[in-house]
Computed example of a mutant assay.
Amino acid sequence: MPEPLKNLLHEALVSEMADRIAANASSFDKARFVKLATDGLGALELMERSALVRDGLFATLPDDFPEAASILKASLPAPGRAGLTGWMLLPVNQFIAARGPDYFEIGLQLLKALTPHFTGEFGIRPFIHRDQQRALAIISGWVADPDQHVRRLASEGTRPRLPWAMRLPRLVKDPVPILPILTALMDDPEDYVRRSVANSLNDIAKDHPDMVAAFIADHIEGASAERRRLLKHASRTLLKKGHAQALANFGFGAAASLECELRLVNSEVMFGEGLDFEIRVTNAGQTTHSLMIDYAIHHVKADGSLSPKVFKCKTVTLAPGQSHAIGRRHAMRPITTRRYYPGEHRIAILVNGAESASETFVLRMPSPDRG
């Protein structure tokens, strides 16, 4: 069993954090900070723990934000000196997010200094929410920064739907202002940065699929292998949904000459086991086709309706008359993101986004007294 994420922010870390701040501010009340920041800490989840430590910073750092920012910046690591790093900086993000927007440039510069030692993507979002134009004008200047972490902050911090973070509703509605940032970082030398660009584009695709498909089309011709991988990763939601332009961007066009067969090895599945199935795709036409083969499980919901979830399977190229067979097992076991219900489910095979074959199967739940 992996260690709970919340335990990364613990009492010993808070105490070490206090020592590192006190080394740069003689007036900092270490004992009071530790007392406030650890009172009831063990009963809290990660973000609640971070908020408690942030409140300890509110109570013990100077009320004057520029002075507090100077202390925090001086407390960051430097050559030959330990400093605030790692999970210590999550509550610092929250501190800057709450106090920094009133001192716009000072707050953003502190996040820029902080991000090589953890990440500033959580703290930066209230600045964008407060004054998007002003914030993006500053952030856009970071795309050429020599530090990869700063460049990544420019893309990751501006993601419209960044997980765990404040949503940016104006950018959800109109993401055009961040496209120049993503374009500038598309060919970044670091995969770490390029993956952030891809994730941001994927965020945008959830609300503006046609915009992202057109963006990909504009940037895929003559693309390097690295850029092509980025663009495909950025298109993953669109490809799963069978968006026609997104599929065409990667050579997955409609092919009426394809034949697809689906065979279920077991049409009844006991929860905790798996659905075994076989797919056979044949190119009955006269031209070669590139095929993206996925499958969707249509799960039974509490009200008896079906809800599909698409899973990646395989990409193949078939010459005229050629066939390809695939065997898979889809596990039906407990996961934290889905509740399973017994009854008749459906599996559908998707070839280049189009449903090409389907079958039903029954999911059975073990009796409560089983075993």
Rank of each mutant, 00 (worst) to 15 (best):
T288P: 08
L46I: 06
H117D: 14
A113F: 00
G222Y: 01
A205L: 05
I96M: 06
I181T: 06
L46S: 06
E221C: 05
P177K: 00
R346E: 14
N352A: 10
S290T: 11
R338Q: 07
A12Y: 07
A25D: 13
F122R: 07
W142E: 00
A284P: 01
E156F: 03
H289F: 10
T38M: 09
A98N: 04
E221I: 07
E278S: 13
R280P: 11
T60W: 09
H299C: 13
R236Q: 11
Y295Q: 03
T282I: 09
G251K: 08
L13R: 06
P180V: 04
L114Q: 08
E259P: 03
D188W: 00
F118A: 12
W164M: 02
A256Q: 12
K30I: 09
S155P: 01
L52I: 13
P2L: 06
A325N: 12
H289N: 11
G157N: 00
V14G: 05
V34Y: 10
D63M: 11
T85Y: 12
L89N: 02
N199L: 03
D218T: 06
R130S: 10
L136K: 06
A234I: 00
T158L: 02
E11T: 15
E278F: 10
A78K: 11
A213I: 01
L110E: 04
R364S: 13
G343V: 14
N7Q: 12
A246G: 14
V193L: 03
F311S: 10
G251S: 11
M332R: 12
V212H: 09
P308A: 01
R159T: 04
V92N: 08
R328S: 14
L264M: 12
E278N: 14
I128P: 01
P79F: 02
A43H: 15
F252Y: 15
I181W: 05
E355F: 09
A225C: 04
P116R: 04
D174C: 05
I347C: 05
M186A: 11
A69Y: 00
L230I: 05
H10R: 09
I297W: 02
L185G: 00
A234P: 08
D145C: 02
L136H: 03
G321I: 10
P66Y: 01
V265I: 15
F33G: 01
I220S: 00
S155M: 02
H117Q: 12
T38V: 09
L108I: 06
F252M: 08
H298Y: 11
R134Y: 08
H330Y: 08
R170G: 07
A255R: 01
D191N: 13
V362F: 11
P175T: 01
A213K: 03
N283T: 00
L275C: 02
V310P: 03
P334N: 13
V143D: 07
P320I: 07
P189S: 06
L89F: 04
I178V: 13
N202V: 06
R151G: 00
A37S: 15
S15D: 13
G371F: 07
E16H: 12
R151W: 00
I220A: 04
N266H: 14
R130L: 11
A302D: 12
P101N: 13
L153H: 04
A244L: 15
R20F: 06
H243M: 11
M17K: 11
L291S: 05
Q322W: 01
P126V: 07
R49Q: 10
R170E: 04
T287Y: 08
I138F: 05
V53K: 02
Y192D: 07
S50D: 13
L61H: 04
G141P: 06
H330T: 09
L111S: 09
